[in-house]
């Protein structure tokens, strides 16, 4: 079982790597559209990286519900529980 701290750190690492932004600039309310490269393609690439890293599968409603970093965190936490 992954700890909440580790889950948080890993998600921020993946977002930072995907969108090439410093981790300090990532907040819980950051979401698609806030960054130039967090467009539909960036969103899909992020989804794939998260699935691979955490070994989870998102449904279409999961992917659509990712309005913020917090949404991503909550969904993965639920899937790993």
């Amino acid at each position: 079982m992954i700890s909440e701290d580790k889950l948080h750190k890993d998600i921020y690492d993946i977002i930072s790597g995907q969108f090439l932004i410093p981790k300090e600039n990532i907040t819980a309310v950051l979401g698609p559209g806030d960054l130039d490269n967090w467009d539909s393609i960036g969103h899909l690439q992020l989804v794939r990286k998260l699935e691979q890293h955490f070994n989870v599968s998102f449904t279409v409603p999961d992917v659509m519900s990712f309005d913020t970093v917090k949404d991503i965190y909550d969904t993965i936490k639920k899937l790993l529980a």
């Binding site: 698609p32 539909s40 599968s57 998102f58 449904t59 279409v60 409603p61 659509m64």
Partner: peptide, 20 residues
């Protein structure tokens, strides 16, 4: 862009289902 994605995925899901 967000609205487009929401609408197209909801409509498409009604035919394809919610799984990928």
């Amino acid at each position: 862009a967000k609205r487009q994605m929401l609408a197209s995925s909801s409509i498409t899901a009604a035919y394809l289902g919610n799984h990928r």
